[in-house]
Amino acid sequence: MAFQLLLNFIIAVVWMFMSSSMTATTFIIGYLIGFLLIFLTRRFFKQRLYTGRLWAALKLTLLFFKELTLSNISVLLLVIRPKLNIQPRIFAMLTELETDWEVTLLSSLITLTPGTIVVHVSDDQRTLYIHAIDAEDAEEAIESIKNTFEKAIREVSRT
């Protein structure tokens, strides 16, 4: 992805030199032309087109903001309820993510989602130990984490 982005920038700069006008407008035109060229020659790259990854990252960001809002509303409702009716539980969740940054991102996202906090990551980075504020939701939480966050992160890191 970094390589394609850099190539696109270089094409834009070359376009600026060719039209000998060093303005932002020329740069943007050159960038669009470069993107068209990269799109046409996409089967020579080993990785997929970089816009796919950018789009996945954007979707992950939007998902993150949605979950952050939901989690805050759930904490609000929990805290202002007159009687505390919670059953905390620490459960283990297996993850299929491999690299360091993926696991870090996943645990940050889990910490900011409704009712869950990562307490410990096992030494082989295969298991996350998650503190859930309500045990009944734990299984559901595992499912939703697996289906939404892991999928979204894998979508970003897919080559």
Binding site: L68, V75, I80, L84, P88, T111, L112, H131
Partner: peptide, 25 residues
């Protein structure tokens, strides 16, 4: 909400829920 949560919830871990989420937002 963060400060009420830190006062009302029973232990460190549940307080961390309130402190890490609500204070961010």
């Amino acid at each position: 909400v963060t400060s009420i949560g830190v006062l009302r919830l029973p232990d460190v871990y549940t307080r961390a829920h309130a402190a890490s989420k609500s204070s961010t937002l």
